[in-house]
Amino acid sequence: MATSTHTGSCHCGVVRYQAELDVESGSGKCNCSICSKVRLWGMIVKPEQFKLLSGEDALSDYQFGTHSMHWLFCKHCGVHAFGKGNIAELGGEFISVNLASLDDMSPEALAAIPVRVADGRHDNWLESPAVTSYL
């Protein structure tokens, strides 16, 4: 696993973070109700690979369903820079970094990150949905 340190933020810059990412390991998108509505594009890291640099007091938390995921977003600009979860099938506690919120990656580097799409809309997490281009 070849990790490198990356920084990201919300749109207004109040929420800032640093994360150790292995971009070659791939990323994920999902067609569930929340991911498709906010166009989340995540990479899962362990909590020790993530550091919130600023803006903890600016984060709002949204939960639904099983409450296993904290969908965090900046209460000023509304951007979802990262979320936190605890799902046994994913190895317990994790952070999902929204790759669209990275500040230090070129469009070319982002485009090179492998993406796996899950059919969360039908709780079929191991399969891709038939249509993915809108994600």
Rank of each mutant, 00 (worst) to 15 (best):
G65M: 09
Q63I: 05
Q18W: 07
R39S: 11
V115R: 07
H11S: 06
A88T: 12
P47V: 14
S4E: 12
K29I: 01
G42S: 11
K29F: 00
G65W: 05
P47Y: 10
A111T: 09
H70Y: 06
S54Y: 11
G26Q: 09
V115W: 03
I87F: 07
L135P: 02
V115K: 06
I113R: 02
G83N: 14
C35Q: 07
R16Q: 14
D119Y: 05
L72K: 13
A118Y: 03
V14L: 08
D57N: 08
I95G: 07
V38S: 08
Q18S: 13
K84A: 02
G120F: 04
R39I: 10
C12N: 04
T3W: 02
M1S: 06
H6D: 04
S133C: 01
H67Y: 12
T66R: 10
G28H: 14
V79P: 00
K37F: 01
N86C: 11
F82Y: 12
A100L: 13
S25A: 15
L21N: 11
S25T: 01
G28W: 15
V115S: 06
T66C: 05
L52Q: 00
N31T: 12
S133G: 06
Y17Q: 00
M1W: 01
S54F: 11
I95N: 09
T5W: 01
E24M: 02
H70R: 13
I95F: 05
V97F: 09
C32V: 07
F64I: 03
G92S: 04
S106H: 12
Y62F: 12
L40M: 11
N98Y: 05
